[in-house]
Design a protein around this nucleic acid. Structure first.
Lengths: 154, 154
DNA sequence: GCTTGACCTCAAGTTAGGTTGAGGAATTAG
DNA sequence: CTAATTCCTCAACCTAACTTGAGGTCAAGC
């Protein structure tokens, strides 16, 4: 039952360690968030550092990043390596800004609402809420990015 | 070209007045957000008040409410009528709370992040970010409601 | 060595909020 | 009256982030 630090994990073991489902891990691999080696029989074998990498994926997802954005974040790391302490410090500043701008958007919206409470102007073209800021509503539509446009990775 | 206040609108006219697409309006009807009468030829005829009703739908969508939630909001109105000034006042207080709690969630998350910047604890089970508050992650999963659980309509 | 359980691939299903297209009928302009 | 719009229904498609299932293989325990 001894394990050297070079032992690899099966997909089931990785699932257990990360709390993810097996199918989610396969999905992330298909999305190039992680890579897997194969053993002689064609089964995936993961490195221990992938536990940390997948934890990173889960945390950034909680902040509202899409898979595509997370892939981009991971690729800002040299060699696309699994984020270490220093990398995480840098990335978390990035996330912090992302979060701040989301908060700001919501606050603007709220203040707008406050100014509009009771005005009953729902059908007016010039209502601040009805016609947000610019009339560029051609941007795909739908609340896919919950209020405000898709955040850019700076 | 004269129009009495009892004239009805075709779906194309309603689309033009609201800025919605024809297909979106048909979709909203299928979702029971609006109702339509039919003329002799089977075409939809809408009331003028539906312009306001659809404006309401658009505005509440901007606040991140789902179709289902909007349907619920509309049904809190007696007879499911189109919201008037007083209704809107009431509903907007409701939305204000919704918004405040979203802001609060984001702020908590941000503060958590601040406390965690540089800790590099990504793989730890007891990390505040990794394991948010409770470990009830069995609630559907996915950032469908952007951080934090689905807001209740109070 | 055989059975059980973990693993494999690939296709299709899921939810939300619509859009697009085919095939056909109604309305409107001239 | 006829042609051009507009409208109708119904089915299929779209994205995101996965899950589920079918049909088959690999690994581990006894």
């Amino acid at each position: 039952m001894s394990m050297s630090p070079t032992d690899r994990l099966s997909i089931g073991q990785l699932a257990e360690r990360t709390g993810l489902s097996v199918s989610a891990i396969r999905y992330y691999e298909a999305q190039n968030l992680i890579e897997a080696e194969r053993n002689a029989g064609g089964q995936r074998r993961f490195m221990r550092s992938d536990i940390r990498r997948l934890s990173f994926v889960q945390i950034t997802q909680r902040f509202g990043f899409t898979i595509e954005e997370i892939r981009a974040l991971l690729q800002t790391l040299p060699e696309g390596r699994t984020p270490n302490k220093a990398d995480w410090r840098q990335i978390s500043r990035n996330i912090r800004q992302h979060l701040d701008s989301q908060i700001e958007t919501l606050e603007k919206l709220r203040d707008n609402l406050d100014g509009c409470i009771g005005c009953g102007c729902l059908s007016l073209r010039n209502c601040q809420l009805y016609n947000p800021q610019d009339k560029a509503r051609s941007k795909g539509a739908g609340p896919r990015y919950l209020l405000g446009d898709k955040p850019e990775l700076s």
